[in-house]
């Protein structure tokens, strides 16, 4: 190795450090909070009452439990059950995309559907839980119904908005180039609305995930929501917190996955490619 390559390598590692060090600095508050939590749960709380410690498991204890749940496969089974529910509900809720395109394109359809939506939309998905239990009983279908309600409105309303916001000159340019109405819809309006539809899917999967956990708390015998509720009855707060962490991480992973996919598939969209 010559002296020159050594300098280059050193230069690279210096530059890498220049990127990594400030990036790590962003996590200093998080590290301090975790440290404080560890001290509070392992040292301070047990001094007052050895029993109260169970209400706030230490981060180290949670990490060990999480590792154990991962190793035994139990966490993955529940995670898979939850993700499957969300996926099935999403496939049904995706029907909101063609409905939203029709609403955005045809004023007469919008005029009929909009009042119905405006009445239904403010009802939180969780408010449907009692009625849905009576309709579907406890189980998969009821769970999926609640998730569907969390998913469908953001997807529908963003699709309508996306179609409304298509640049009029794009449509006019296509018409003057000889495109029929159907071709304009398929070749111009839908691609142009796609970034906004993706926003709807992202928001919908987020609210759907929240509704999913709530639905599983009430009526399910699998899934992350079920897991933490089941652990509560056994006073296994370490499992409860480990489950909460898993729910958060999985929700974040779904969101990041959608964003990465959108950036790959729609590289032309400035709203998707800019980092936020």
């Amino acid at each position: 190795m010559t002296a020159a390559t050594v300098t280059i390598k050193q230069g690279r590692s210096v530059r890498r450090a220049a990127i990594v060090v400030p990036w790590l600095r962003n996590f200093s508050l998080l590290a301090a909070l975790l440290g404080g939590w560890q001290i509070a749960s392992a040292v301070i709380l047990p001094r007052f009452d050895p029993q109260i410690g169970v209400l706030l498991p230490s981060p180290a204890g949670v990490a060990i439990t999480l590792a154990g749940l991962l190793a035994s496969g139990e966490l993955l089974i529940h995670l898979a059950a939850s993700v499957k529910r969300e996926a099935i509900a999403f496939l049904i809720a995706a029907l909101a995309i063609p409905v939203g395109v029709a609403m955005g394109w045809r004023h007469s359809i919008h005029a009929q559907l909009y009042p119905v939506l405006e009445v239904l939309r403010p009802i939180p998905p969780l408010a449907w839980i009692p009625l849905s239990i009576l309709w579907f009983g406890l189980g998969e279908l009821q769970n999926q119904f609640i998730i569907f309600l969390g998913l469908v409105f953001p997807i529908l309303l963003n699709t309508v908005e996306g179609v409304h916001r298509v640049d009029r000159n794009l449509i006019r340019a296509a018409r003057s180039l000889g495109a029929s109405e159907w071709k304009v819809l398929r070749r111009v309006v839908i691609p142009a609305a796609l970034p906004q539809i993706v926003v709807g899917v992202r928001v919908g999967l987020g609210t759907g995930w929240m509704a999913l956990v709530a639905a599983e708390l009430v009526g399910a015998n699998s899934g992350l929501g079920f897991m933490i509720n089941d652990a509560r009855s056994l006073l296994r707060t370490d499992i409860v917190v480990a489950g909460m962490v898993a729910i958060g991480v999985a929700g974040l992973a779904i969101d990041l996955g959608i964003r990465a996919l959108a950036r790959r598939l729609l590289p032309w969209s400035p709203s998707l490619t800019k980092r936020d």
Partner: peptide, 19 residues
């Protein structure tokens, strides 16, 4: 009677299909 390829148009904002 309506838009068609015999009369194509160019706009100030280009109106190219970004995708």
């Amino acid at each position: 009677t309506g838009p068609g390829w015999e009369r194509t148009i160019i706009f100030q904002d280009y109106a190219l299909f970004p995708w």
